[in-house]
Design a protein around this nucleic acid. Sequence first.
DNA 1: AATAATTGTTAGCCTAGGCTAAACTAATTG
DNA 2: CAATTAGTTTAGCCTAGGCTAACAATTATT
Lengths: 158, 158
Amino acid sequence: MSDHEQQPLPPTPHQSGDALPPVEQHAQQYETVRNAHETELIEDYVELIGDLLRHRGEARAADIASRMSVSQATVSKMIRRLNELGLVTSRPYRSLFLTQEGQQMAETSRARHDIVLHFLRALGVRDTTARIDAEGMEHHVSDETLAIMQRFTEEHQP
Amino acid sequence: MSDHEQQPLPPTPHQSGDALPPVEQHAQQYETVRNAHETELIEDYVELIGDLLRHRGEARAADIASRMSVSQATVSKMIRRLNELGLVTSRPYRSLFLTQEGQQMAETSRARHDIVLHFLRALGVRDTTARIDAEGMEHHVSDETLAIMQRFTEEHQP
DNA sequence: AATAATTGTTAGCCTAGGCTAAACTAATTG
DNA sequence: CAATTAGTTTAGCCTAGGCTAACAATTATT
């Protein structure tokens, strides 16, 4: 075999896109995302439970399962975790309730979610799309950006 | 024990926030997010490898590990997966390369990432924050929203 | 050339978050 | 009130994505 190997090339001079950030900053970006992922699901559950309590008066495991389209077993397991984390109280075969701390988290999540959703709509995104995007984005928007989104929304549809 | 149990309450009449979406739509929101999570990491790796190749001329496992701040073992395992998925070619102790398909994915990811990043900056978000938020948001922004972001950016700083 | 340092791989462990199947409890209805 | 249906839980399995520790290969240094 002669040297037809793939060889590293010199960096492309006409760089499209930005330069690479310094290693520490770059690393921090990924770390932040990983951290968000850890709390994301927890927050989604708590937020949904809060919504169900508010709109329906009760939050049953079966509702959560169908709204999240996961199995009831998955929900049951998750509820145990939320319990251990002190976010919900539950008794077998009864509606769930949020603890003080859980309510706090639900409100915060709900508020973030609404800000992002309203912002997207104000930007001109269709409702269905906005809802989907907001669900994914809400956990990755910093307080700084959130504040800017809120201001934008207020200014663009009073 | 007398009946001091926590009881479900009637739905709050003064609803803050929106009403609950119909179950199917609600479920689809969460499904979309779950699907995004599955491809997210893969795309991040491929995108980073593309960036390293472009800016540095080569992409070594050690660089990926430090830029993502994960262990080299984790990177090594992931590279095997990327290989199996036909996204990269690798030989031990040599730089990684992207396959045709990998390059395609890297470009798409990079483009999305840039649009989100530039949009955030155009909105007025500070650079460091914008980078962090963009890293988390990019995988959750629909094509529709992406197009709107791009238009916004063009109009707000040419 | 020998040794040291860097880089990469492998093995084995852990947690989170899915799933199905089976068992149990509560509610509804014949 | 017995039986069916609906809701919940438990057990056990799987994959992804982290980790550390030990080892192997390459590259750099003396």
